[in-house]
Computed example of a mutant assay.
Amino acid sequence: MNDALKSQYSLIVEFLGKALGPDFEVVLHDAEDHINSIVAIANGHISQRAVGGPLTNFGLEVISNENYKDKNFKLNYNGVSKDHRILRSSTMFIKDDDKNIVGMLCINFDDRRYKNISDQILKLCHPDMLIESNNAYESVDSLVSNAGETFYGSAIEEADTVIKNYLTQHNTSIDRLVQDDRIDIVDILNQKGIFKLKGAVRTVAKQLGCSEPTIYRYLSKL
Rank of each mutant, 00 (worst) to 15 (best):
Q191F: 04
T150Q: 06
I185N: 02
E157S: 05
D141A: 13
R182V: 08
I185A: 02
G153H: 10
V162G: 08
L189W: 00
V186A: 04
E132I: 07
I163A: 09
P127W: 02
Q169R: 12
R176E: 14
Y137F: 15
D128Q: 11
A155T: 03
K164Q: 14
A147Y: 03
V140Y: 01
L177T: 09
V186T: 08
T161V: 08
N165R: 14
I163D: 03
Q169E: 15
I183P: 09
D160I: 01
Q179V: 13
I163N: 03
N135S: 15
T161L: 05
K196R: 14
N171L: 10
R176V: 02
D187G: 09
A155P: 06
L143V: 15
L167W: 07
D181G: 02
G153I: 01
K196H: 13
R182H: 05
Y166K: 01
Q179K: 14
E149Q: 09
G148P: 09
G153L: 10
S145D: 07
K164I: 02
L189N: 00
H170Y: 09
L189P: 04
T168S: 15
G148S: 14
N135L: 15
E132N: 13
V140H: 01
F195H: 07
E158F: 04
D175T: 14
D187S: 14
Y137N: 05
M129S: 10
N134I: 07
N135T: 12
I131S: 11
Q191W: 05
I183V: 13
D184P: 01
I194V: 12
N165Q: 11
Y166G: 03
G199V: 01
T150V: 13
T172E: 02
D184F: 00
G148C: 10
A200I: 00
F195M: 08
S145Q: 10
L130T: 09
K198N: 08
R182P: 07
S139R: 06
M129V: 12
Y152T: 06
I174A: 01
I174V: 13
G148Y: 04
D181E: 09
K196E: 10
Y152F: 12
D141W: 00
V144F: 06
N171F: 06
S142Y: 10
N135E: 15
V201T: 13
R176N: 15
R182Y: 01
D187Y: 15
Y137K: 03
N165M: 10
I183H: 05
E132D: 11
V201A: 13
A155W: 08
I131K: 13
D180K: 14
A147G: 11
V144A: 10
V201D: 08
I188F: 03
D184Y: 02
D180H: 10
I163K: 00
T161M: 02
T161R: 03
L189V: 05
F195A: 05
T150M: 11
V144H: 03
E158V: 03
N165I: 06
Y166S: 05
I174H: 04
S133W: 12
Y137S: 09
D141S: 14
I131D: 09
A159H: 05
I188D: 00
I194M: 06
D187H: 15
A155S: 13
T172M: 02
I163Y: 07
G199H: 04
R176C: 11
N165V: 05
D160Q: 08
D184N: 14
D128K: 11
D187K: 15
V178G: 11
S133C: 08
G193T: 06
V140N: 08
